[in-house]
Design a binder for these strands. Structure first.
Lengths: 156, 156
DNA sequence: TAGATCCTTGGAGTGCGCTCCAGGCAAGCG
DNA sequence: CGCTTGCCTGGAGCGCACTCCAAGGATCTA
């Protein structure tokens, strides 16, 4: 396989250092998790995990010989990314779009790059909005604190 | 009226300095806006404004002699606060709760204070989450940038 | 081998935050 | 006067992101 290949495999592996410390993962090679284990690890419900798969937000998940899902560490990495993107408020449809680009292969590299950069800008904007809101809240809070002190001194 | 009275009137007036520069407001005293004017000023739809009122998120709005709504600058201040809280992801039900506390009078002061402080903590947590997500995005973006450079040099 | 627990599926249901509709009243204008 | 525009109401509908259900098969523990 070409060393230049741009895949989510390499990509998420690059990211693992940034993941929350999930000690309960099994080592690569014998990383087989049932759906309820993944639910426990991710905080999602089994329902949601199956639903993510149905809508194309997950890659195809391995199955046991009887047809039960067996998730891998790589699937957990992908779910961690999805979780982060979800926190940004990105619509599920957009995440599905990203997943499709990843599945489509290397030639979608540029589009993925643009999508990530646009998302980054969105996140920066959201942070700025929240900081504006924080300023308003702080002003109101100090107003209430002052009013509280005034009422207290009046009672004194 | 007691100078110690804690009302949203005083409170939002305290905030006006923090509002986005809305030059198209009329001066206090002849501040009467139709619902569509308020829609234009706030970016909300008239539908949403009526709905806010129905669910108790707005105080009672003045009516013209024919029953049409006439919003005041104070109503706009309240809507600006609601807009900020909405940005934090606060559920509408919680905002309604806050509105009820304001309507209930001064004795709800402490509860409002606590609610604002809790909201502040939520906002700080959201900002931290987003910054975590930003870190992940930045790592992925630089990964794609590196991959892009590598592909470019290979083509060369 | 029995019983409890977990997993499978397609499809229906839920809660939230709007969003729109029908039918009607009121004001301004040529 | 009729026409257009804006606003009124209660209630229905919508899109999103899950969330759950029913019926049946698989797996585990004693």
């Amino acid at each position: 396989m070409d060393v230049m290949t741009v895949t989510e495999t390499t990509d998420t592996r690059t990211d693992t250092c940034a993941m929350p410390p999930q000690g309960d993962r099994r080592p690569d090679g014998k990383d087989k998790y049932t759906i309820s284990e993944v639910a426990a690890l991710t905080g999602l419900t089994a329902h949601t995990l199956r639903w993510y798969e149905r809508i194309g937000l997950m890659p195809h998940i391995d199955r046991s010989h009887t047809g039960q899902r067996r998730y891998t560490n790589r699937d957990l990495d992908w779910l961690a990314l999805v979780g982060k993107l979800r926190l940004t408020g990105m619509p599920v449809a957009d995440m599905v779009r990203y997943a499709e680009l990843v599945r489509a292969g290397d030639h979608t590299y540029a589009e993925r790059f643009e999508l990530l950069k646009a998302t980054r800008e969105d996140v920066l904007a959201r942070i700025a909005e929240l900081q504006g809101t924080l300023a308003v809240l702080d002003r109101k809070i100090s107003f209430y604190a002052d009013a509280g002190r005034a009422l207290a001194s009046e009672r004194a």
